[in-house]
């Protein structure tokens, strides 16, 4: 019998986007596991963090940064964007599908938006299926 797919998502976020895990999943999504990893600034995200999250079994990795032009450290979110692009290519090369990784510009303290994005990712994952290297 096929095991039911319980998606696992890692969310890297800048503390200026939101603080500690105030983002709650809707009750019908309680089957998914979402892990939040906070960073002082999105520019601290390193290529290897994203890859290691996949190694640890994540089916999708999301990087949430401030809207462009709103980074407290000027270009932190732009750097994050470039790195995410690079790792997406790497994932495609490996055959893991770059669509499992995404960068999202999120207005500060907007839990609703965050919830929507996670929701969207979960529904994308229904198509992508589980991480083939998990």
């Amino acid at each position: 019998m096929e095991k039911q797919f319980k998606p696992k998502i890692s969310v890297f976020h800048c503390i200026n986007v939101f603080g500690d895990g105030e983002v709650l999943l809707p009750p019908e999504r309680q089957d998914a596991a979402v892990e939040f990893i906070k960073l002082p600034c999105s520019s601290m995200i390193k290529d290897v963090f994203m890859l290691r999250a996949f190694e640890a079994g994540a089916d999708a990795v999301m990087v949430m940064v401030c809207p462009e032009g709103a980074c407290r450290y000027v270009e932190g979110n732009l750097r994050a964007k470039k790195r995410v692009g690079w790792v997406k290519n790497l994932l495609d090369e490996i055959g893991l599908d770059g669509r499992r990784l995404g960068l999202f510009n999120v207005p500060s303290e907007d839990a609703a938006v965050v919830g929507q994005i996670i929701e969207q990712t979960l529904s994308d994952l229904a198509d992508l299926g589980p991480n083939p290297a998990a």
């Binding site: 190694e55 790497l90 490996i94 055959g95 893991l96």
Partner: peptide, 15 residues
């Protein structure tokens, strides 16, 4: 080195 190692592990695991 870290990125490549991670990517290779993922790639081999997938295969």
């Amino acid at each position: 080195v870290a990125v490549l190692a991670s990517a290779l592990r993922l790639a081999f695991k997938k295969d």
